[in-house]
Amino acid sequence: MSHKISITGQITPDQIPMIAENGFKTIINNRPDGEEPNQPANADIAAAAKKAGLAYKEVLFAGNELNQNHVEEFADYFNQAEQPILIFCRTGNRSTGIYEAAKQMDLLDD
């Protein structure tokens, strides 16, 4: 794989400085707010990313609601984003799914 990415489960705002220290340049969030109690708010994660100098994008969808528009929005952002990229959702499964869908549809630059 030529892309420099990591896919993970839910991150928190207090983890953002460590993510930046580990060399990530961009975060893509695939998890909508309110999926479970005590889930960090996306606005708080976005603010922490901005403070740490990281690019941040939300392509939000419930696990069973992935569609063509999500994949295209993800791919458009992914292709212009500075790597390495950290992509997250609740467990990493939907982030893996959107990344793989974009690859299969040949939407990602090499």
Rank of each mutant, 00 (worst) to 15 (best):
K4Y: 01
Q80M: 12
A55M: 12
R90A: 15
I85R: 10
I7C: 03
L86I: 07
G23M: 11
Q39K: 04
T8P: 04
K25V: 05
Q83W: 00
E72K: 14
D106F: 06
A20C: 06
I45S: 10
G53V: 03
R90M: 08
I98H: 08
K103H: 07
H70T: 01
I5C: 08
T91N: 07
K51C: 07
E73N: 14
R90I: 00
S6K: 15
I85L: 03
P13E: 05
I19T: 08
V71R: 04
E65K: 14
D14Y: 12
N22C: 05
A49W: 05
T26W: 05
V59A: 06
A20I: 06
Q83L: 00
N29I: 08
A52H: 03
E72R: 12
I11N: 10
K25P: 10
E21N: 13
P17Q: 02
L108A: 02
M1V: 08
Q83F: 00
E35D: 15
H70F: 08
E65N: 13
A48V: 10
I98N: 07
A102M: 12
A46P: 04
I27C: 08
Q83K: 13
T91C: 00
T26R: 06
Q83V: 05
I27S: 09
D14W: 11
I87L: 15
V59L: 03
A46E: 15
S2I: 13
E100V: 14
P13V: 01
I5S: 09
Q80E: 15
L86D: 00
P37K: 14
G92E: 11
P40M: 01
I98T: 06
L54Y: 05
F88N: 12
N69S: 14
N64Q: 14
S95F: 13
E21H: 04
Y77I: 06
E82I: 07
N79A: 13
K4P: 01
T96R: 14
P32K: 02
Y99P: 13
I98E: 11
P40S: 07
G23D: 11
D109Y: 02
A46I: 04
N42A: 12
A43K: 10
M105K: 15
P32I: 03
I7N: 08
N30T: 11
G23C: 10
N42F: 00
L108E: 07
I27H: 08
A48I: 09
E36M: 13
E21L: 08
Q80H: 06
K50I: 11
A52R: 02
E65F: 09
